[in-house]
Write a protein that binds this DNA or RNA. Structure first.
Length: 1270
RNA sequence: GCGCGGUUAGCUCAGUGGUAGAGCACUACCUUGACACGGUAGGGGUCAGAGGUUCGAACCCUCUAUCGCGCACCA
């Protein structure tokens, strides 16, 4: 098969196999194939932006995902790797708007209007949005492309909106006027997470504000000096603040200063916020343009003057001189004018952090605007499910255990003794309240006996302090309990510390929460130690004392956990786990999430406003005053009856009243009255006398189409009126039902009026008392807006629902933060409907949710990971993934972040074209250790290419040998080299499995590299040439048998190697798998069709090793052989023998040596001849090396160079002496022999003997050379 | 200010108590029938510094230096 090219050419191979995999539907996940024996494995791609193109970060991230997915398939799992893209509101806006401006289509998006703009956006998305997906295919990603999703797919969008509506209904979403982070370039609000603080060199301007006297005239030469970094904001100043405790300024408080440029008097106020030590201790207060100033303004009732508009330009309020200036120009202008007026005291250089928009890079403007906010759901679950939870910073007291001795070694007897103790003390069946959680934890016989099944006598000793342990244990994690124990709702992990005579134990207590609310416990004690050493060594003296006092010492949970962490994993684990801290920190300091963006591309907020209602808000309603007339009756029923009577006698019933606002005639009938009175609130009854008037004066605020099931009703109209009873003001809401015949019946409800939300946080209850006079004139009027109060709660004006409520309703113009769609990614991509029962039956969700792994960057722990966890718990009732792997950041050789602007990011597609996808994958993975940033170097890819080439040629070599493919291996014919390489393979498989379990991909890559290159190619293949093509090869049957057997071993190794390599190098392994014919005899679904689903190699079991004679002796022998070869080659080099020259070696063997071994040695030594001679008399000065297998001489022709040989031996001797000295020093240490583990001691002794033997031999050789120069 | 990570060969980095490692680069030799995208041999390290724990420390603890990252504050 010599047609195989000499070097691997990836391009054609990659295209061919990717096409093949797609055609054969190898990436398609089928939930129907998932069952008890075939587990599901799932992973959702972190959806790349549609604006993005593939960069090295994607390569790293997606290669890892592909490796995980391919490995899982080979493990026999049903794999779903779900791909897709993210619509990326702000990015898309910025890219698209730039392009449209460049093309001259528009100046600002408002020129186009929303609809036109979105047309452009969709067109752009269709054209460019799929680029990155195509690029991932080039990388070999095995995503199920049939399930590709986009966050703005109709189905996905509906999920986003469904979630919004659900959270809105829970009261978690609210609208509020707040100081938000405003991006003046994109003209939108941003969440706190999207703001990047950048150190900025600026100035601190000290401004002089003239002090005014009582009459409002400036006092000559008296100023208040304030310092600011943003002089342009002074135009919106409303006060100067000082600290109330600052003695310098107490006399100033309450006086006024003149705001320069605006020539407006503003007050001096006192507020604790002011730090007297900073600057002059006086602060200018700009309520509309600084979050802290805004808070102060709220406290002091200051007005808000907006001087900077949403586009970053000054408003009219800034004054004629500044209006329309950009904020930076305004700064210069203000400074200039102040300087001219002599009001600028000084300017200092000042370095401070300024918030910048992550997307547009412009400085953030604090801006007062109305936005939507979300109070995060499922926070508690999200907080406790990851890693160690928040409890790690707590401390637990040491519970002191008196030296209650163990009752012998027998575990059963110990258990009985402990049970007896527990019974005697009356603990069994008793509950103990945990101080940390307040729970009552129940002590049961069964849990006690379970605990004692664990090894460790301390558990039994701890029985005597059980109640205390349970009481003082700290909760550090809760996780949902899974089947098969449906009785258990939740599992909690608690941790306590135990001290017995200076020994410290961590006691993890597992508490199971039952559905009925009881808590049962189980526990196990483990010696608390660090790095194998007792904790006692690490605790400060005062915590211990020689006889520790009970319960005084305490230790942090973190310290205790260090010793038990490995036992107890969180429901979600982070790799590397240090990110759990970052996560916990953020979860502990959650701020409500600003989810609205003033953009068009994205999910429009599913909130509808009633246009008529909004217009009606500006109308005024007459307050109808109700005399204090009481209706007779005490119970609601009595009252209702008398109300009807009154209505009847007053002639209201069946009467029509003309409404002044609409001109309609509204009927009062008995029925509607009855319904109204069924509402709680005496006001309903009391207002009956005022009813005609209310109906006349009510203002129409909303019309909506009526939904079935009352076919006679065509529409529903909402009216509002105001009613005053004594000093209480009521809002009266009328629902007017318009029948199809045109008649209108009413229904009504009165609610006492509360104020609007004022503090921006919780809608408070602020009765409008100030506005009501004690005896108001009956003609007093209020704006509808005022009496309607909190709009959020009033369904008359605002609706939260996915589809339009009907004509007259207009949708909120804002879109949602892109992350508000991304946080649903793990389930919204799988067909989520929001209906629990339906979702539970959905095949995809059922089989693949929760997902197994998530691979992402640590920068988006807050943006994405944490939010996905909360959404998962909230909407699926379960976590979204079990493991999160955080990649490092890819940097360039200089350590700089790769970025477009620096131009230091190589285009991965160029690399793939140049080196092949496998090379890019392997090179990247080899240089990307867990949790560290990656300094990318093209050399890494070159290494990958070289490696592929090596693999290619090794297989090529095998093919050139011919023979049967994958013949039977006969253990009787195995050479020592065969056995050795099988052992090395086993070792490699074990190492790789262990590394996979910990997501240490660079270690896997290194192991693969070492095994294949350094062990298989460098040693085994070379050695096997003795049989395959050695000079002694004859056509004798035995030789041919050996040859076939060697080929069988090679095939065995290669077929395993290809499978081990497949997740990293999918293309070349598939090509070789077929090229070598390894697929031939396999069933289609086990590697017959594709290596993708070939079985993942397993470590050899004992029977296999015994059958093939794989033991430590072989390993030692072959190691010694190769060491001898190394030494022999070194002799050649020292003697300056050219590499290509064949020489004669003589071996004085130490024992029996098979002819085959001699042949191998000869080959590896590049020897013309290797003579075996046990009585070889070397000429004086003949270079020699000594090994376990014997002495190897390199007889030289002509005069031996005695000096060179002496120098060589002396050098070796020095090295040996050094080693001996080191080992001996250790062994001579008196404590060493006593304390060291026996295995280590033996190992050291052997090392010493070996070196000493070597020393003797080298010394002898040196002596044989004689003294002096020769 | 708080927290996290790093400091190991010329470069990039592995290594988590028991003989200091890899790749690249370097030096010398070798185009040998798998592979020059290769082979063989070699040089090169007080594991940032100091102290401590230990029989034993690159590894655990404390401190220092230094670089990087994140959070908070910033008038």
């Amino acid at each position: 098969m010599s047609e195989i090219p000499k070097a691997y050419e990836p391009q054609a191979v990659e295209a061919k196999w990717y096409q093949f995999w797609l055609e054969q539907k190898c990436f398609v996940a089928d939930p129907a194939r998932v069952n008890a024996r075939r587990q599901a494995y799932s992973i959702v791609i972190p959806p790349p932006n549609i604006t993005g193109i593939l960069h090295m970060g994607h390569v790293l991230n997606n290669t890892i995902q592909d490796i995980l997915a391919r490995k899982a398939r080979m493990d026999g799992k049903e794999v779903l790797w779900l791909p897709g893209t993210d619509h990326a509101s702000i990015s898309t806006h910025s890219v698209l708007e730039r392009e449209l401006r460049k093309r001259g289509v528009m100046k600002h998006r408002t020129d186009l209007g929303r609809e036109k703009f979105l047309e452009h956006a969709w067109a752009w998305k269709e054209k460019y949005g799929g680029i990155i997906i195509q690029q991932l295919k080039k990388l070999g990603c095995s995503c199920d492309w049939t399930r590709e999703r986009f966050t703005m797919d109709p189905e996905y969008s509906r999920s986003v909106q469904r979630v919004f509506v659900a959270l809105y209904k829970q009261g978690r979403i609210y609208r509020g006027k707040r100081m938000v982070n405003w991006d003046p370039a994109a003209r939108t609000a941003l969440s706190d997470e999207e703001v990047e603080m950048l150190e900025t060199k600026g100035h601190l301007w000290h401004l002089k504000y003239p002090l005014l006297d009582e009459a409002g005239h400036p006092v000559p030469d008296q100023f208040v000096v304030v310092a600011t970094t943003r002089p342009e904001t002074m135009l919106g100043d409303e006060a100067v603040a000082v600290n109330p405790k600052d003695p310098r300024y107490t006399t100033l408080v309450g006086r006024k200063v003149l705001l320069p440029l605006q020539n407006r008097p503003i007050p001096v106020i006192a507020d604790d916020f002011v730090d007297p030590k900073f600057g002059t201790g006086c602060v200018k207060v700009t309520p509309a343009h600084d979050p802290n100033d805004y808070a102060m303004a709220q406290r002091h009732g200051l007005p808000l003057t907006v001087v900077i508009g949403p586009d970053g330009a000054m408003t009219a309020a800034a004054g004629k001189d500044f209006e329309r200036l950009d904020r930076m120009q305004a700064r210069e202008a203000a400074v200039e004018k102040l300087t001219a007026q002599g009001l600028l005291l000084k300017v200092e250089d000042y370095v401070h952090s300024v918030g910048h928009s992550q997307r547009t890079r412009v400085p953030i403007e604090p801006y007062l605007s109305e936005q939507w906010f979300l109070k995060y759901p499922a926070v508690d679950q999200a907080r406790t499910c990851v890693g160690l939870g928040a409890a790690v910073d707590k401390s637990v007291p040491w519970v002191h255990l008196p030296g209650a001795g163990a009752c012998g070694e027998d575990r059963k007897r110990l258990r009985l003794a402990a049970m007896k103790l527990a019974r005697q003390e009356g603990w069994i069946g008793k509950t103990f309240r945990n101080v940390d959680t307040g729970w009552d934890v129940l002590l049961r016989r069964k849990s006690l006996s379970h605990a004692f099944n664990n090894r460790n006598a301390i558990v039994i000793q701890a029985a005597s302090v059980l109640p205390e342990l349970i009481r003082t244990a700290v909760l550090w994690r809760s996780e949902p309990h899974r089947p098969p124990h449906p009785r258990f709702k939740q599992v909690h992990h608690l941790l306590a510390g135990l001290n017995q005579a200076g020994e410290y134990y961590a006691v993890p207590i597992v508490v199971k929460e039952l559905a009925d609310g009881t808590f049962l416990y189980d526990y196990k004690a483990k010696r608390a130690a660090f790095g194998g050493k007792p904790l006692v060594a690490h605790l400060p003296e005062e915590k211990l004392g020689s006889q520790p006092a009970p319960n005084v010492a305490s230790v942090s949970v973190r310290e205790l956990l260090a010793s038990v962490k490995s036992d107890l994993g969180g429901a979600i684990r982070f790799y590397p786990d240090r990110w759990t801290k970052t996560y916990a920190h953020w979860m502990a300091n959650l701020q409500d999430w600003c989810i609205s963006r003033q953009l068009w591309w994205g999910h429009r907020i599913p909130v509808w406003y009633n246009e008529l209602g909004r217009r009606a808000l500006d109308k005024t309603v007459l307050v109808v005053r109700l005399s204090g007339q009481e209706l007779p009756g005490r119970t609601a029923r009595d009252l209702r009856r008398s109300a009807w009577r009154l209505a009847e006698t007053s002639g209201f019933l069946r009467q029509r009243f003309e409404n002044r606002d609409t001109g309609w005639e509204i009927y009062v009938n008995r029925r509607s009255l009855e319904h109204a009175f069924a509402n709680k609130g005496l006001a309903n009854i009391k207002l009956v006398p005022a009813l005609p008037q209310l109906l006349n004066h009510a203002v129409h605020i909303a019309t909506e189409s009526h939904a079935p099931p009352i076919p006679q009703v065509a529409r529903v109209h909402k009216f509002v009126a105001a009613l005053q009873l004594d000093a209480e003001l009521y809002r009266v809401k009328f629902t007017v039902k318009e029948l199809r015949d045109g008649r209108k019946f009413f229904d009504h409800q009165a609610i006492s009026v509360k104020g609007k939300e004022t503090d921006g946080k919780s809608p408070g209850t602020h009765p409008l008392t100030g506005k009501l006079v004690t005896r108001p004139a009956s003609a007093s009027c209020y704006k509808v807006a005022e009496i309607v109060g909190d709009v959020n709660s009033d369904a008359a004006f605002i609706r939260c629902q996915i589809d339009s409520p009907g004509e007259g309703w207009i949708q909120d113009p804002d879109v949602l933060d892109t992350w508000f769609s991304s946080w649903l990614w793990p389930f919204a991509t799988m067909g989520w409907t929001g209906d629990r029962e339906q979702d539970a039956q959905h095949p995809t969700l059922k089989a693949f949710y929760p997902t197994t792994d998530l691979v992402t960057a640590p920068e988006i722990i807050f943006f994405w990971v944490a939010r996905m966890i909360m959404a998962g718990y909230e909407f699926m009732g379960d976590l979204p993934f079990r493991n999160v792997y955080f990649t490092g950041i890819i940097r360039d050789k200089q350590g700089r972040k790769m970025s477009k602007s620096l131009g230091n990011s190589p285009d991965p597609l160029d690399l793939i074209a140049k080196y092949g996808a496998d090379a890019v994958r392997f090179g990247t993975m080899r240089s990307a250790p867990l949790g560290q940033d990656v300094l990318f170097d093209e050399k890494d890819v070159e290494l990958g290419r070289n490696f592929c080439n090596k693999l290619w040629n090794a297989c090529r070599f095998r093919q050139m040998q011919g023979g049967n493919v994958e013949g039977e291996i006969d253990p009787r014919l195995l050479s020592s080299d065969d056995r050795w390489i099988l052992l090395r393979l086993d070792q490699a498989i074990c190492e790789i499995d262990a590394a996979f379990a910990e997501y240490r991909f660079n270690e896997i890559a290194q192991t693969l590299h070492r095994f294949f290159w350094s062990e298989y190619c460098d040693w085994y293949v070379e050695a096997s040439k003795a049989i395959l093509s050695g000079s002694s090869l004859t056509l004798a049957t035995s030789d041919l048998e050996h040859r076939a057997n060697t080929l069988a071993v090679i095939d065995f190794i290669l077929s395993h190697t290809l499978r081990l390599f497949h997740p990293f190098l999918p293309f070349i392994t598939e090509e070789l798998w077929h090229g070598m014919g390894f697929h031939d005899d396999l069933p289609a679904d086990q590697g017959g069709r594709t290596i993708m689903v070939a079985h993942w190699p397993k470590p050899f079991d004992a029977a296999f090793k015994e059958h093939y004679g794989l033991d430590a002796a072989v390993e030692q022998f072959v190691s010694a052989k190769y060491e001898l070869v190394g030494q022999g080659r070194n002799l050649r080099r020292e003697a300056n023998i050219p590499a290509g020259k064949k020489v004669r070696f003589v071996l004085k063997p130490a024992g029996q040596l098979a002819a085959h071994e001699v042949e191998v040695l000869k080959l590896l030594l590049q020897a013309e001849k290797l003579e075996l001679d046990s009585s070889y008399p070397p000429r004086k000065g003949t270079p020699v090396v000594h090994s376990v297998l014997g002495e190897l001489y390199l007889p030289l022709e002509g005069l031996a160079d005695l000096g060179a040989e002496r120098a060589r031996l002396t050098k070796e001797l020095v090295k040996i002496d050094g080693e001996i000295e080191k080992v001996q020093a250790k062994l001579n240490h008196p404590a060493f022999r006593e304390k060291v583990p026996p295995a280590v001691l033996a190992e050291h002794q052997k090392r010493l003997t070996d070196w000493q033997a070597k020393q003797t031999r080298v010394q002898q050789a040196l002596n044989a050379l004689g003294e002096g120069s020769g």
